[in-house]
């Protein structure tokens, strides 16, 4: 029983860590966006405001995939272990 619960907890933590690998994508994407925005501001300093707001918009949209991973990681850490242990306990009839 203890071994089973230990495996459940460990696998949940591992899964959360693996899910957060998705953080690479938004990082690279937003870095590109900000680099291009810097170039644009360097070329045309007078439209700094427009460029900045558009860039923040784009960054927020690019962040979505990372946030999906984050939500899954949070679910795996805070919600999944309890439910899985409950399922295990009912399956073993304890």
């Amino acid at each position: 029983m203890e071994l089973a619960i230990g495996i459940i907890l460990g696998c949940c933590a591992l899964g959360a860590g693996l899910a957060m690998i998705a953080g690479i994508g938004p990082g690279i994407g937003e870095g590109h966006a900000v680099a291009k925005a810097c170039e644009a501001i360097g070329r045309q300093p007078e439209c700094k405001g427009d460029v900045t707001t558009t860039m923040l918009m784009g960054c927020a949209v690019a962040e979505t995939t990372g946030l999906y991973a984050l939500v899954i990681a949070i679910l795996l850490i805070f919600v999944a272990p309890g439910q899985l242990v409950d399922i295990l306990k009912t399956a073993l009839g304890q």
């Binding site: 927020a60 962040e63 979505t64 946030l67 999906y68 984050l70 939500v71 949070i74």
Partner: peptide
């Protein structure tokens, strides 16, 4: 779905 997750994920991750 993506709108809800974006907003909630950002604020929650900040507080965590």
């Amino acid at each position: 779905v993506s709108m809800a997750f974006r907003h909630y994920g950002n604020i929650l991750s900040g507080s965590v």
